[in-house]
Amino acid sequence: MSSIFTKIISGEIPSYKVAEDEKFLAFLDIQPISKGHVLVIPKQEIDYIFSINDDLLGELMAFAKSVANKMDSVFDCKRIGMTVIGLEVPHAHIHLIPINGIADMDFGQAKLSFPPDEMEAIANMIREA
């Protein structure tokens, strides 16, 4: 079930990494709905988040929490919203999104675009937090 995320994990496709350990990776979404929109994934190829065994799912949530805490210290927002949709890429992933209101979580809104140097600056801010 190799996906674009598998290629990001292996380094075949570049990404703007914000956090990584032996089991998980967090990187900026290249089609964000908010500045600082991050994807958190397990490195193990698992399509559906609810197919992840309980221990690994707990670790994934703890990893996502650590990333969200960094994001919260970087962005001027009320919360870091979290959602799992799971239809875009056949690899389990969590969206972490800086938000000020529920409308900020609307995936139907136009996607944002930032130049590569700004994407790298955003990733650096989160990594260094």
Rank of each mutant, 00 (worst) to 15 (best):
M1V: 08
I4H: 01
T6K: 02
K7R: 13
I9A: 07
I9P: 02
S10R: 15
G11L: 08
G11P: 08
G11K: 13
E12P: 00
P14H: 06
Y16C: 04
K17R: 15
F24Q: 06
L25E: 09
F27H: 05
I30T: 09
K35W: 05
K35M: 11
K35Y: 00
L39D: 06
P42T: 10
Q44T: 13
E45R: 05
I46R: 07
D47H: 07
I49Q: 00
S51P: 01
N53W: 00
D54R: 14
D54H: 09
D55G: 02
L56C: 00
L56I: 04
E59G: 10
A62I: 08
F63I: 08
A64T: 02
A64V: 02
K65P: 00
K65T: 09
S66R: 14
M71H: 09
M71V: 02
M71A: 09
S73R: 15
S73E: 07
S73K: 15
V74W: 05
V74T: 01
V74C: 11
F75C: 04
F75K: 08
C77H: 02
R79C: 11
R79M: 04
I80S: 07
I80Q: 03
G81A: 11
G81F: 06
I85E: 06
G86H: 05
G86Q: 10
L87Q: 12
E88V: 04
E88T: 10
V89W: 07
V89G: 03
P90V: 05
P90T: 07
I94Y: 10
H95W: 14
L96I: 10
I97Y: 06
P98T: 10
G101S: 15
D104F: 11
M105T: 12
M105K: 06
D106H: 14
F107R: 09
G108Q: 15
Q109K: 15
A110Q: 14
K111H: 09
L112S: 10
L112F: 05
P116A: 15
D117Q: 13
R127C: 00
E128P: 00
E128N: 13
